[in-house]
Write a protein that binds this DNA or RNA. Sequence first.
RNA 1: GCCGGCGUAGCUCAGUGGUAGAGCAGCGCACUCGUAAUGCGCAGGUCAUCGGUUCGAGUCCGAUCGCCGGCUCCA
Length: 639
Amino acid sequence: MAKVRVTFSDGKVKEYPKGVALADVVRDAGAPEALVAKVDGELRDLSTKLDRDAQVDSVTFEQPEGRQVYWHSSAHLLAQAVKELFPEAKLAIGPPIDDGFYYDIDIGRPFAPEDLEHIEARMRELSKRDEPIERVEIPRDEAIRKYTEAGEKYKLELLQEIPDARVSFYRQDGFLDMCRGPHVPRTGLIKAVKLLSTSGAYWRGDEHREMLSRIYGISFPRQEQLDAYLHQLEEAKRRDHRRIGRELRLFAFADELGQGLPLWLPRGAVVRRILEDYIVDVESKRGYHHVYAPDLASVQLYKISGHWDYFRENMYPPMKVDNEELVLKPMNCPHHIMIYKHEQHSYRDLPVRIAELGRMYRYEKSGTLTGLHRVRSMTLNDAHIFCRPDQVKQEFAAVIELMREVYRDFAIVDYRTELSLHDPKDRQYYHQDEELWMTAEGLLHQVLDELKLPYTPVVGGANFYGPKVDVQVRTAGGKEETLSTVQLDFLLPRRFELEYIGEDGKAHRPVMIHRAILSTMERMMAFLIEHYAGDFPVWLAPEQVRLLPIADRHLEYAQEVRDRLAGHGRRVELDTSNERIGYKIRHPQLEHVPYMLVVGDKEASSGQVAVRSRSSGDLGPMPVEAFIERIAQEVTTRR
RNA sequence: GCCGGCGUAGCUCAGUGGUAGAGCAGCGCACUCGUAAUGCGCAGGUCAUCGGUUCGAGUCCGAUCGCCGGCUCCA
C-alpha cells in the first residue's frame, strides 16, 4: 500500500497510508482540538485526503487563523438558521472579522431584535444536531442553475465572477452555501453563540446599491469564553470617552449649537491647553515655527490646491461676500504654503517647518459623527515641512522620531502602522500623474524599511495629493482610527509653483511633508480619556489635588495649604462642604483626582498633610513641602 | 447621507390609553465628624419637537430634530 510522509511542525516525520484524512493525521499527532490543518502552509478541511508527502500543522481556535475559520463556519451556521426561519431570505456574504463574524442578508425587511433571539436559538439547536460540514464541488453551470432557480441574486452575482469550471460549496444538513472554505468539521463545534447587533450594509459596499441587513455575531468553543468576551465588552464601555467626558465635565455637545461641534468645558480646556503647550514646546525644540492662519479663505486658494476638485464634498459651501467667495478652511496646507511663498528661500534655509494648531471645519456625513472621535470642527496638530528632495528621507525619519518621543510621553504602545497608497484602478480620487505616485510611494516604502517600521500597505488609502503613513489606534468601542499621519506630497509644490534657489543659482521645486502627531485636539482628547480610562497622569489631570478639611475649624489651614500649592502651579480645589470625610473623599475619587489631602487637627498643628492617592489609597502624613516636591517630580517626569 | 434602535428631572432609570415616579446630584436645616455615601426637609418635568387618532396620549400613528450601533467616508 502506498504511503505518504508527513512532516509535523516539531520536525517529526511519520508515514501514513496514502489518502489518509487530515482528521486522522492530526488526531494521531495529539491535536484533537484541531479545527482545520495547514498542508504545506495552506489551510485545508480536516476531511481532506492526503495523497502526497507534506508538512502538516494542526490549527486550533487558539490561533488567529483557527478563529477565522471558526467564525467563518459560525457565519454559515447563522445563514442556515436564517434560511430555516426565513426561507425567502437571499444570502449575500458572510465573512469572519477581527472579532466574530457577520452575514449580509436580504429578507425584504430589516431584522427586528426579536428576530435575533429566534435566530440565535435556532443556531443553538443546529449546533446540538451536530451535523457534519462537508465540502462539495459542483460544476459552475449547475451552480448557476441552482442559484437562478432559488432566486439567490447576490450569490449569482458573486458566482458570475468566478472563472473556475467547478465551484466549491459547503453542506451541513440540508443547507448548502457557496464558499471557498475551509470550515470546521461539524456544526457541534460551534457551542457558545451570541448575535450582537444588526445594521444596514450596502451590497458590495456601494452606497448606490441595495441596502442589505447585516447581522453581527460572536462565538466560542466554550461558554466561559463567551461570557468573558461579553464582560470585556461591558468593561470597554466604561472607558468610553463620551461617558467619562460627561462625568468628568471635560466636554459637551448642545443640540442648539449643531451636530459635531464640541464645547470644551473648563476642565477639558485645561487638559487641551497642556497638550497644546506640550506639543508646541516639543516641536519648537525640533525646529518647527508656529503660525496662525484665519479660519476662512477664498475658494480660489482651494481651486489652486485641488481641494475644490477632490475634497469639495467635505467642505462647507462657499459664502459670497462683496466680490469674494469664502469657505471655512478644511485643511491648513494651502495656508502654510502661502506662508512659505511669502518670502524667497535658499537651499540653505531648507527644511522650513511651519506648524500650527490649525482649526478646521469639515462637513462630515451626519451618520459618521461620534463623540470627539469624529467632529465637524477640529484643531489639528498640523505642520508642513518644505524640503529639498535630498532631505526627504532624513526629515521623514525625524518626524517618526518625534512621534516616538511623544508616544513615550503618553505611554502609547498599542498601535499599528499603515502605508496608504493610491489605487491605480480608482483614478478619480487621486491626482493623475502616475509617475509622481511611483516616486512618492517608492520613497515611502524605502524610508519605512530603513526605519525598520513594520507596516501594512493599504491600497486606496492615499490622499489625492500623495501617499501617507498612518498610525492606527483602537477606540474603547474597538474601532481603529488614525492618530498620527505623515504624508508625502510632490503635487502641491507644483500646483503652487513653489521654489527655492539652489546652489546653482537656479530655481528648484521643494517637496512637502504634511504631518500630524497628536492628531486633532478632539481626537487626541478622546483617545487619552480612553487610554487612561479617565485616570489622567498628574501632569495632565485637570484637577491635581483636592483639599479635604476634616471639620470647619480646619478650613483656614486648608486654605493656607491650597494657596501654597497653587503658588507652585498646582491645580488644586478646596472642599468647603459640611460633610464627613468619607463623603468628601468619595467625590474626588469618582472624579479621578490623583491626590486628596486630608487636613485635621494633627496636620494643622504639625504643618503636614495626610496624603491619599486615587490609585493606592491612604499614604499617610507628610510635610507640605515634601508633598509639593513629590508632585512636582511626577509632573516633570510625566508619570 | 443610508439602514435599524432609542429619546421621561442635571445623571441612571421605572411608568402597556385614565391625576408624571424613584435613586443619585442640587438647595435648606441640623450634626463638626479621620480615608468611597449622616439625618430630615425642599425644589426640580410643555415626557425631544410638531401634527394626527381618541372622551382622554408619556403610552398608538406620522413627520422633524438629536443620540446610539452599523454602512459609506475619514484627523
